[in-house]
């Protein structure tokens, strides 16, 4: 079911030679979604239950009391174990970040769900992700949107994520190896942007490529320790503001100030 060995290697070669070359998703015929009877159904359900429980306490978007059922359904479908290193598969559905090499992590499932939820995307949307990492966030977004474009700066990570996404049958995800700072102008504007790569500032080109009315989500913190989320909102007039949100219900003052 995977593309032939030669085709795979040709793609890897192309990526290595041309870091910013756009690579089309694997041929559609090869990518029938994996059946999810993969032996991980039970831990995956448990993971979703944990996420739901945490979200019950978390400050979500104004007027929202729970994560979107669509997001939770997707979390219950995506084979997270396929996106973690083999040695860590038995911990894939624990609600914690895991190392994936090259100093990067696959985010805590709850944070992935929260970020996905904050984007408020629907089936017609085109989404950009900066920092493919393991490919898991792209896989979670894929069933919810029309297309996901994702850029990873570290070539081996990009190659691996691409292979996984293709193997798991996500046909509407396009990966690219290269610099995410300038976004992906050819497919802009985007209906949502996720920036998972750490940055000292929000790249102006990304702000420019956000469609009016759309949102960008950025987790802030150290590796393994997401401290807060920044939600960038561009209103219909093009005015840009942010919202700084803790992923946890916490009041910094005691005594009901």
């Amino acid at each position: 079911m995977v593309t032939s060995g030669f085709a795979k290697w040709a793609r890897v070669g192309a990526v290595a030679l041309l870091p910013v070359l756009e690579v089309a998703p694997a041929a559609a015929g090869d990518t029938a979604p994996l059946p999810r009877a993969d032996g991980y159904a039970a831990p995956r359900q448990e993971m979703v239950r944990v996420i739901e429980a945490i979200a019950g306490y978390a400050p979500l978007s104004p007027g929202r009391r729970a994560l979107s059922p669509d997001v939770l359904d997707v979390m219950a479908e995506v084979p997270r174990h396929a996106f973690v290193p083999e040695a860590l598969r038995d911990r894939a559905y624990d609600d914690r970040p895991l190392p994936i090499g090259y100093g990067q992590t696959i985010s805590q499932p709850y944070i992935v769900a929260l970020m996905t939820d904050l984007l408020e995307v629907d089936g017609d949307d085109v989404v950009l992700e900066i920092g493919t990492g393991s490919g898991y966030q792209a896989a979670v977004l894929a069933p919810l949107v029309k297309h996901v474009y994702t850029i990873e700066i570290v070539p081996p990570l990009a190659d691996r994520a691409k292979g996984r996404l293709a193997a798991a049958g996500y046909a509407n995800v396009t990966t690219r190896t290269g610099d995410g700072y300038y976004g992906w102008p050819a497919h802009a504007p985007f209906d949502g942007i996720v920036v998972t790569a750490a940055s000292s500032h929000i790249p102006p080109p990304l702000v420019a490529q956000l469609r009016p009315g759309a949102r960008m989500v950025i987790p802030v913190g150290a590796p393994f320790l997401v401290q807060h989320l920044v939600l960038v909102e561009k209103d219909l007039d093009g005015k840009v503001t942010t919202r700084l949100m803790l992923p946890v219900a916490f009041v910094p003052l005691t005594g009901g100030h």
């Binding site: 500032h201 840009v240 503001t241």
Partner: peptide
């Protein structure tokens, strides 16, 4: 050289360039 450092803590959202 391929992906230069762009360190600018707290750059304004209205900035046109990094």
């Amino acid at each position: 050289p391929a992906v230069p450092f762009r360190h600018a803590p707290g750059l304004s959202l209205t900035a046109k360039a990094g």
